[in-house]
Design a protein around this nucleic acid. Structure first.
Lengths: 154, 154
DNA sequence: CCATATTAATTAGCTCTACAACTATTGGCA
DNA sequence: TGCCAATAGTTGTAGAGCTAATTAATATGG
């Protein structure tokens, strides 16, 4: 499998700018959410739950693209803050289903606004077409890495 | 500053796929580097040093886009492994300059190969043009976030 | 129907990252 | 010149992510 010299020139900067942009983006949102005593990671959990409640932890972890063990701590925090509830699953006594509390609802509305405003601010000036292409590239990479990473263990 | 409804539809998936792709990419490289007792973060330090030795920690941190405090721990590990050296700066007694050891050289060659192979494997099938656009988008975002994040404190 | 493998959630322990606070040194300016 | 700001490096602490191992429950195969 030969690789073009041209490819090499572009691949390294791509990987680097992706890592940097991603780290800075998270930091940016963490700063924005600090007043609300929340982080970007916890916000993602709430957001995903607001789109799809009553899922199990495994399922939610998969949707978020993180490990179940990572999710456990995030849920501990959110449960402690009274924003979510774990309830025993009706069909599987090992599993728990996740639910937003009434306290969470107004918070989620606020966070969605902050989140959308930040995104627009960050992405301002980037053409829709470029953004579509970048999204296609990134989600393609994620899909490919899912295969590659899982192909190693099982 | 009004935002198009169209924009909103695409901005959220973009942010999500960037975060996911970035996390999975790091994990992938960490797995690849595990045999060498190194991580992606440490590899980045070595790689940047191999392009530009004799820099100070502050300067290196800036090139890597990470905080100086973060770099300190990475350098501790690399120094402990005998891969780098901190030497007092000749011109500023506060500062230290960084240098690769002879032990590091062959390792860096191997890591460059692993790194390039992985990148090619992950990015295979993505057109050069799309990759260029994605890189442009991502580095633009990083630059914008640099301004936005620093505009907050100083 | 029972033994074994698999799965859901958790805990323990690690790395990387960030912020805040601290020390030592430098640089600017009055 | 001498005092105060700023800067380089460090340490402490905390969050987010990972792997590995544990526990309880479910599925499967003989």
């Amino acid at each position: 499998m030969k690789t073009d010299p041209d490819d090499i020139e572009i691949q390294e900067p791509f990987a680097r700018s992706m890592a940097t942009a991603s780290r800075m983006w998270r930091r940016h949102l963490d700063l924005r959410f600090r007043d609300l005593d929340l982080s970007q990671a916890r916000w993602n959990v709430l957001f995903e739950l607001s789109r799809n409640e009553e899922v199990t932890q495994i399922e939610l972890a998969h949707r978020l693209g993180i490990e179940a063990a990572t999710l456990v701590r995030l849920l501990d925090g959110l449960e402690g803050a009274g924003l979510i509830e774990r309830r025993p699953s009706a069909t599987d006594r090992r599993a728990k289903t996740l639910h937003l509390t009434e306290v969470a609802s107004p918070l989620i509305v606020r966070m969605k606004k902050i989140s959308a405003t930040s995104r627009a601010e960050i992405l301002e000036g980037i053409s829709l077409e470029d953004l579509r292409i970048a999204t296609k590239v990134l989600s393609g990479i994620a899909a490919r890495l899912e295969v590659l990473n899982n192909g190693q263990n099982g």
